[in-house]
Simulated assay, not measured.
Amino acid sequence: MPGADMVVFPVDCVDHDSMNMLKRVCERGHIAWHPLRTASVASFIELIGRLNADAQTNTQSRGAPRFCLRHG
Rank of each mutant, 00 (worst) to 15 (best):
R28P: 07
M19V: 05
G63F: 04
G49I: 02
A4I: 05
A4T: 06
N20G: 07
Q60K: 11
K23F: 09
E27V: 04
C26I: 04
R62Q: 13
D15W: 01
H16T: 13
P35K: 02
S18V: 06
P2A: 12
A64V: 10
P2T: 15
T59H: 06
H34N: 02
V7Q: 00
S18G: 15
R70M: 15
A32M: 05
Q60T: 10
A32E: 08
V25T: 14
V14P: 00
H34G: 03
S40G: 02
R70I: 15
Q60Y: 06
G49E: 03
V8E: 00
H30N: 11
F9K: 06
H34L: 00
W33T: 08
L22V: 07
V7K: 01
L22D: 00
C68S: 11
K23I: 13
P35I: 02
L36E: 04
V11Q: 11
R62K: 15
A39F: 03
D5Y: 13
L47A: 03
R28D: 09
I48W: 01
I48K: 01
Q60G: 04
A42W: 08
R62E: 08
N20K: 13
I31F: 00
C13D: 01
K23M: 10
S43V: 01
A42G: 08
R37I: 07
L22T: 14
S40V: 01
R66K: 11
L69W: 10
